[in-house]
Design a protein around this nucleic acid. Sequence first.
DNA 1: CTTAAATATGCAATCGATTGCATTATTTAT
DNA 2: ATAAATAATGCAATCGATTGCATATTTAAG
Lengths: 347, 347
Amino acid sequence: MTRKKKKATIHDISKALGFNSSTVSRALNDSPLIADKTKKIILEKSKELGYQRNSLASKLRTNKTKTIGVIVPRIARHFCSSVIAGIEEMAFDKGYDVIICQSLETVKREKKLLDTLLANRVDGVLIAISMETTNFDHLENYKNEGFPLLFFDRPCDIEGCTNVVIDDFKASFDATEHLIRKGCKNIVHFSGPKTLALYRNRWRGYRAALEKNNIPLNDNYIFESKLMEKDGVIGAQKILSLPEVDGVFSANDTTAISAMQYLKKNGKNVPEDIAFVGFNNEPMSAVFAPSLTTIHQPGFEMGRMASSLLFEEIDGTRRVKGDQVKVLNPELIIRDSTSKHMLSESI
Amino acid sequence: MTRKKKKATIHDISKALGFNSSTVSRALNDSPLIADKTKKIILEKSKELGYQRNSLASKLRTNKTKTIGVIVPRIARHFCSSVIAGIEEMAFDKGYDVIICQSLETVKREKKLLDTLLANRVDGVLIAISMETTNFDHLENYKNEGFPLLFFDRPCDIEGCTNVVIDDFKASFDATEHLIRKGCKNIVHFSGPKTLALYRNRWRGYRAALEKNNIPLNDNYIFESKLMEKDGVIGAQKILSLPEVDGVFSANDTTAISAMQYLKKNGKNVPEDIAFVGFNNEPMSAVFAPSLTTIHQPGFEMGRMASSLLFEEIDGTRRVKGDQVKVLNPELIIRDSTSKHMLSESI
DNA sequence: CTTAAATATGCAATCGATTGCATTATTTAT
DNA sequence: ATAAATAATGCAATCGATTGCATATTTAAG
């Protein structure tokens, strides 16, 4: 009873009507070769039989899957899901399907997913590599098969690949300078793994802002971690032992908030004692008290941009030589966590 | 140069070695029919040629895709992504691939996604239906094809389908009674669309708790909406015109927090003037001040449970007659938004 | 040293849709 | 009215892997 019904095929339609299956196929694809009258008959029969194209067969034959793969570290991450939203919108317009996967920040899963996508012959892949990914062989191999591969958010220097990123350097520069303008002199930076270009760039932006404002660099002020919640607590503890610290620029919001919570519990006031700037503009950052000044990344736009570039590559409109980089502009969102020292503001 | 390389097939291996392609196929599938010596030779050659199975061909031939589809309203939602995490873990163990899709709460997309999954001949589908879904024909049709279909979170009464849900009634009952114990007498309920069984159950739980405690029901206290952020603002405005209200049980956290923000801005104190209980245990609920008392749903567990039931159905271990329901237990997480009136606590 | 049994490999059909080329039916032009 | 052009349909190969059955090879048993 719940036995899997055999689904109708073009051959069933063909037999039922006396047309050849090639005619049926063409009719269902609305080919101009087929007479309108015939199309109508075939379409009706196909509805009657509950026909539905077997994509597997079609994809096998045509060697085109009209499907792209997307690998993100974690789909629950607000930024990732905005990018996905952008990708899906664009893909929908172009008639592509999207397979979404999460690497959970591990290379092992990343490799496996890439293999699966390849086995399913997706037409191209969009990827934000995992934090663990320091060796790029699997990505290069994939690229060498001749399939379009495009990096977003976390850039990667592979011949023939496009990178779509935001200007992390500028964003971090602005964020840090904002702290400086608010009067901060001793600014800690919560950095992610420097193996990722993205975190290196944020770190560079931070340093550049200090240098430009003649504030000496202090290596003790750089806390490198995976930027998880617990790393915020660890960071806050370190800060408590550095009483001169009056500002923090964190490379993500989660860690910033976790640190602020810990500091608040331990008698420090934000922003009066220590000002905070985060990165990512997570929903919780607007809701936390004090609300967190942070960098908004145009995730949705990035998704649209990345996918449209990928589609151009797939249909041959665009050829990538060397490596190409598209840079999107982030935006500093000023909130309460940096509202101190209004006096020293230039406005 | 970036030309798509033709990928090696079993026939290439077969030609290169002089074995028949069927032997190659069996060898690559580690069939006991093939001599170990031969397997080794074939495996080596396949590596040399960079062979990778064409899943499309394999799936077409075997009529088994080893892939399941998951449709959720929105992958960014914390609860959804925990369910997905649970599903992926289980699927990984069983050697299944997972295609994740989001309906964005629209029936139109839901239908389209179901079609696409069907066209790709997934072995089964897990779905949390969209808020708009009041007509179940597309789901029944899918089910009638004889494919396993399983509902989670948002139950749906279709012959032969299993539902995996949490006990919304009990959770809401507990949540409401918690407010009552804290001394609330005039409790508003933010409800979702009553077309969804889930929200009906939460509403029933709320009513039952009031009845049990001899608190009169008041229809003016039921605010029905789609539970978006803006609905929290609307709810808060209504509350301001009902000065006797001293508690709110919201069917989700987002709306609760948005309402609390608005009330705070307008001079009301939470929990002193109005206590709040939410639903879902979103990350931001722990971080908002005051932190929100809420219902935690075991999303991860639900994902594991739902997918393992689906796999049993796929491999025929389990047969579903009528409709089967698995109920998981939610947990009340008590935080600051209900910390008033400690005196009246029984403890 | 046969014969039966067991092991290893090959052959060919199959899954369902697509498509180049061939064929037939219908128009159009002369 | 007939040749030429155009439109509509059919034939058969193809995509790549799998698998029931047939065949060949080896091993074991008598």
